[in-house]
Amino acid sequence: MATLKAEQRSSLTKSERKTLRTKGKIPAVVYGKKITHTPIVIDEKELTAVLRTNPHAIIEMEVPAWGKQPVMINEVQRDAILRNVIHVDFHQINMDEPVTTTVRLDYVGEAAGVREGGILQIQHHEIEIRCLPAQIPDSIEVDISTLELGSNILVSELKVSDAIEVKSDPGDVLVTILAPQKEAVEPDTAEEAEQKAEAQAEAETSQV
């Protein structure tokens, strides 16, 4: 389980939030059944590590006045141009109550259709699930080794634990193998057609 340490803060002005970010701190809020809406500040490097490894994982957060609490990231706000994180919403969860989240799909194996020249096309890299927090997997494995040309794998075909309820549309295509496209042969230009006709006429003349 990832860990984050939060520092409590009061409401900040726009300039104060900007100053925080230059110091490697990210403004955030945490809320839930056990925690009222609490403004906090977290370390940017620690947050980046969590976002890079598993942004949907359970996080043990040490919140001032509330102690250690299990939380999940509810929303990440990024700068429209630079794409750096400017604010995060954390939701405090209860470990004995199901939560809805997304989980990464891990495609494994070499598809038979690819060996025949087909093109692997992945439609979804994540799916939505619902289960107890402790049952959330790091990823769900999708074996593509038996996929042939023109075949696909649907959400309904995923193999998951009985403790996990898949919320994504069962009919959604996760991955498919496309048949290789034949290279289009461009028609001859008028000049090329004329040159070919002349060459054929010369060949016929030489045979006489």
Rank of each mutant, 00 (worst) to 15 (best):
G24M: 11
L12E: 06
T19E: 15
S15A: 13
L12P: 01
G32Y: 00
E16V: 08
D43W: 06
T38Y: 00
L47D: 03
K33Y: 05
K33D: 13
K45H: 03
I42K: 02
L20F: 00
M61V: 13
H56S: 14
K18C: 10
L51W: 01
I59Y: 11
V29G: 06
S11M: 15
A49E: 13
I58S: 09
S10D: 12
V50C: 08
T36S: 11
I42T: 03
A28E: 04
I35D: 00
K25T: 04
H56R: 13
V41N: 03
V29C: 10
P27A: 05
A65K: 05
A49K: 12
A28F: 04
P39R: 10
E60W: 11
D43C: 10
K33L: 13
R17H: 10
P27E: 05
I26F: 09
L12N: 06
R52F: 12
E60S: 12
T19M: 14
V41P: 06
K45I: 01
T48K: 15
T48R: 13
V41E: 06
V29D: 07
R17K: 15
V29E: 11
T13L: 10
A65R: 05
K23D: 05
V63I: 10
D43E: 04
G32Q: 12
K33M: 12
H37P: 07
T22W: 08
A28V: 05
T48Q: 15
T13W: 03
K45C: 07
V63E: 00
L20T: 10
D43Y: 06
K34V: 01
K23Q: 15
S15K: 06
R21M: 02
K18A: 14
P55F: 13
L51M: 09
P39H: 11
N54M: 09
T48I: 14
E62F: 09
R21V: 10
K33S: 13
H56P: 02
E62S: 04
K18R: 14
T13V: 06
